[in-house]
Design a protein around this nucleic acid. Structure first.
Lengths: 216, 216
DNA sequence: TTAAACCTACTGAGTAATCGGTCTGTTTAA
DNA sequence: TTAAACAGACCGATTACTCAGTAGGTTTAA
């Protein structure tokens, strides 16, 4: 996938001298915005509250992010960079890749705020003219293609059954992870998301695995 | 489950004369509200627009539903009645029950607006102090308990493997259905939700099924 | 070297628009 | 005749965003 810096939705002709103070301020603003979006969603959250949380005035915030949409897109871009860094190094085979998703789930239990923000934004972006619509659409497509490619590779190696519909399984995996996240967000203390995804993935691997050639 | 009329969140002391005109107006308002919530989400949708869509003024709407929250809860209650009517007659065994979920998915492809409204509301209800929070929480719990009970029954009959974690599988099934719905909503024309859920359910049945006793 | 020129990083005080909801009625149907 | 079913006008709160200006640092030319 490697979404990478290419897709960054940056302001166009804005040339910043990139002072250290400004950069750290922007980080603080993004953190505060993530926090607010996680608690209230994007549409309902007021950027004035974000500004207050970050320790400056509303116009102060708008100096760094000229519109509310810019602020949202900055958060999405940041997530792109982080996740592409986390996933891409996994050059493992299909088997290890699927098991790696359990580790992703385990990691996510440590950052419920981020997970909740993105779960809410994901659904919110289904509404008409939502500024994050394209981003989440692309993300879903790329994720599915990525997972499907890993599985196809397994088929070519003879490790995965030949009749497996790889894109369909990829969609299934994405759906399961997102769905379990929702259940977990509703009850973070008692729902065992990691156990649930582990149970599913292990069964899935069993089901996909090609029966080893019988030595005659 | 049979959520039924018991849980209805009705205005308390409001005594209505229940005229035919009023009832049909309320239906029109609920339909319009569903439409708006589906396009814009609950928080962003303006009840003035709902009123206009239903062919009356804002105070006219507020005559039937005194607050925006009342309108939302009325929609949720309506869904309760419909879905309990659809599910409860299924007194089938675990096997038929799971296959029945494929039919549910097929049915849902015919009402994308309703599905989208509830998918958005589901995520929105994760936010702080959201009026639908309790409803979606209860619904998830009841659904999980319901599915788990069907599976437990299968275990007792010896049709399902004894070591199956029924509540965990139930959560898995819910997650899968919700997750696939999200992917379908993002691309309703080309994503095959029914095929995806069918593939998953059929594999799941295979995995859960107890191996038949070996006749000696 | 020093001052003008210019930049970033803000703030206080607005503004137009939107929203949920109220008040005060009038019409309509049983 | 009486309550249901509305409508018009309005209100207070909230929202994203603007305007005009200030403090302080950095670059540049005489």
């Amino acid at each position: 996938m490697t979404v990478g810096p290419g897709t960054e939705t940056q302001g166009e002709g804005i040339r910043r001298r990139n002072s250290a103070k400004g950069a750290s301020r922007r980080e603080a603003i993004l953190a505060a915005a993530m926090h607010r979006f996680s608690k209230e969603g994007y549409q309902s959250a007021a950027i004035a509250d974000v500004a207050k949380d970050a320790g400056l005035s509303l116009p102060g915030l708008l100096h760094h992010f000229p519109t509310k949409v810019d602020l949202l897109l900055a958060i999405l871009d940041k997530r792109d960079l982080e996740s592409s860094a986390a996933i891409d190094k996994d050059q493992a085979n299909w088997h290890a890749f699927l098991l790696g998703l359990i580790q992703v789930a385990k990691y996510n239990t440590g950052i419920p705020e981020v997970v909740r923000a993105f779960a809410i934004l994901n659904a919110e972006s289904l509404t008409q003219n939502h500024p994050a619509k394209v981003w989440f659409g692309n993300r879903a497509q790329q994720l599915q293609a990525n997972i499907a490619a890993k599985l196809e590779d397994g088929v070519l190696r003879g490790e995965v059954k030949r009749d497996v519909d790889c894109p369909a399984i990829a969609a299934e995996v994405i759906a399961m992870m997102d769905g379990l996240q929702m259940l977990w967000l509703r009850d973070p203390t008692s729902f065992d998301m990691v156990g649930a995804i582990a149970g599913y993935i292990e069964r899935l691997i069993q089901d996909l695995q090609a029966s080893p050639p019988i030595r005659a």
